[in-house]
Design a protein around this nucleic acid. Structure first.
Length: 108
DNA sequence: CTATTGACTACCG
DNA sequence: TCGGTAGCCAATA
């Protein structure tokens, strides 16, 4: 088991619970963790999510923009993964984002 | 303990 | 509508 770094582990837990073909935002995760101001910290945790079973590609910013795609192996990997789940990406932005958005505070 | 960084978000002109 | 600035939080050096 990895470190129980609380905040990190919390972020991973939520990211893993994101259903297939859905996405969520950093702020939504942070809010569910009880720290709505810690969206940046969530993104920081995602940076460290490499090597873990965390579908970090399902986590984007509040407007559905793939801001973290540069952190993946390839610049297109994040978009390819999302498209593979049935999503549509256009210019690093998720199309119909509202329809694929998954809010842990409401769905979970 | 202080300073810097960052996959954010909200506000302002 | 768009670009820039400010605020907040957690981790790292």
């Amino acid at each position: 088991m990895p470190q129980s770094s609380n905040f990190f582990d919390q972020c991973y837990a939520i990211a893993r619970q994101v259903p297939y073909g859905r996405v969520t935002s950093y702020g939504a995760i942070a809010k569910y963790l009880g720290a709505p101001r810690s969206a940046r910290a969530v993104g920081y945790a995602m940076t460290a999510s490499h090597g873990k079973d965390v579908p970090a590609h399902r986590v984007v910013n509040r407007i559905g923009l793939l801001t973290g795609k540069h952190h993946f192996e390839g610049i297109n990997l994040m978009q390819q993964l999302l498209e593979n789940e049935g999503l549509t990406i256009k210019n690093n932005q998720i199309q119909n984002f509202e329809s694929v958005f998954w809010d842990p505070a409401k769905e979970l």
